[in-house]
Design a protein around this nucleic acid. Sequence first.
DNA 1: ATGAAAGCGCTAACAG
DNA 2: CTGTTAGCGCTTTCAT
Lengths: 333, 333
Amino acid sequence: MASIREVAKLAQVAPSTVSRALNSSGYVAEETREKIKAAVAELDYVPNQWIRNLYRQSTGIIGVVAPGLIHPFFSSLWNHLELELRKFGYNMMLCSTGGDEQREREYLDTLERNLFDGVIDGAAVLPDENYAKLEKPIVFLDRIVPGIPVVSSDHRQGGELAAKKFLECGCRKVLHTVGDRQYRLQSHEGDDALDRYLQEHGVETIREEVSWDDTTDYASCYKLTKKLLTAHPDVDGVLASDLQAAAFLKAAASLGIDMPGKLNIIAYDGTFVTDFNSTTPTAIVQDVRTIARQTVAVLLKRINGQQLAQDQIVVPITLVEGETTNRTSFKAK
Amino acid sequence: MASIREVAKLAQVAPSTVSRALNSSGYVAEETREKIKAAVAELDYVPNQWIRNLYRQSTGIIGVVAPGLIHPFFSSLWNHLELELRKFGYNMMLCSTGGDEQREREYLDTLERNLFDGVIDGAAVLPDENYAKLEKPIVFLDRIVPGIPVVSSDHRQGGELAAKKFLECGCRKVLHTVGDRQYRLQSHEGDDALDRYLQEHGVETIREEVSWDDTTDYASCYKLTKKLLTAHPDVDGVLASDLQAAAFLKAAASLGIDMPGKLNIIAYDGTFVTDFNSTTPTAIVQDVRTIARQTVAVLLKRINGQQLAQDQIVVPITLVEGETTNRTSFKAK
DNA sequence: ATGAAAGCGCTAACAG
DNA sequence: CTGTTAGCGCTTTCAT
């Protein structure tokens, strides 16, 4: 790896002149420029970007903290984030915590101590105070902490869309799986909205708290869903994330439950995995691309020191009708 | 961000002493150590890791070049790679090329010019000569280039396992999808082995070349498989990657083809997505975890300047019997 | 238009 | 045991 000094020596100029020529900053005589160009070619000189970063105090790398890479919703989110960051000349360092506190802490530490330009935390599971001392521009996904910008789907809308669909289908008892409630997440709004709306309309709801494994690992999902369907035989509506919904579908079939006659299932997320099923589920679809776009937009504003109009950004969500909910409802009249 | 000099000043010692105290390299009097500790605490000093890297000429970050993050086989591979790298104290920077040459080139360039400790390229689609000048320790996945270590599944074994199964099922005409053949990939061995074995036993085979999209995007998969099944109505065996296999299954069902009576399907990869189907496919399962482990092992050897026993490492592969191949074959007698 | 010199924040070699 | 000095590879004044 040739250094700038070697180039300078060969071109018989000072290192600073080479620097200027290469960055086209400041004046360099055409003749000198030529000599330098020749020397660069001869030595196959490539400036060490790392060192440049040292001066610029920036690397063009954004750290992304993820709970996992396999879950279809997240893998597709990271994919879109990468594309979006690339658009603005940034690279992405992807860190996966597996939902573990300690690992998140370690990663945040690494990201803080290195010259990363910013952080996107999609796996924030630490108490609020841990985030207070972070100096880097940061954006959260879903997790709400005062003073930190957060991007997420409009889960309240998602919950309501699902609730309305269940009502249309004439459901009387709806079960939905919810995550841990220890910290404030935007997605909790969805659970609350669902319950509120359904209960206002006289429909019973059951919340079933599930672990991260139960939403990520299909085998766990399947075991869980079978258990739930057995424990609550009178449930006629289910809202659960894609994988779980797929598992519910399979489990219900194996239990001989008539669908969608006796059981309406709505999948939350609407990633590509729902396509596999022989029956296409009705799904609440998150707009991953827009989430990625907004997240990057917010982060860049932070990096450039601009003010944000709002700390919380919610992205609209849609319901896509499939075959797992009753079409012959009174809505269709 | 306090610097080491500020700490030194506050503790009334030289920066180098602080450095020694913090790295516990060299002698520091207990008393001095205390003073320094106090100063560090007072200023909330955190050493700038980035700068340290400059001296160590290493960052602890490995660049991973991926064709994509969504495809289940890859997302699970990146996940395991991350875990494995973490085990050895490394972080992973994940770059996704979408299979694009230009993007691979750009990423390799970035990785070379920055202080990454090594590169794992799972999306190598450039002509061989592009890799000759790479100076960083590198490992390829699947792609074979002389002089560069490569890790992959034992696809030859995979091809043969599939072939034997098709024979057992009494297939007479087997279709399999293959990728681009422009460069040498270990996975081509699988296609070749399948053809060879089947043809030796008098079974006709059809290769169908497919694009990256046709293996990644489910909608594309489905369109493709429907077309193929219509074009080759007499095919009684199909080998295709998970997503495609799922699509074949759905397409065949929609065309009213009797399965597995008239059509035996084997899914290649065996990722979690195959679980979703109401029918569990027979699958050739890649051992992602071992691939990840071997890849990291090879890379670390390279980083530490150790010799490799061999340039090509192949990881055993297995066939898992499912419901999409005929069990009542003459093997069962 | 060019070069010398200072410095980014830290470490390592060497005196003392 | 501790401080001084030099330097990682580059950029950026500031003279000339």
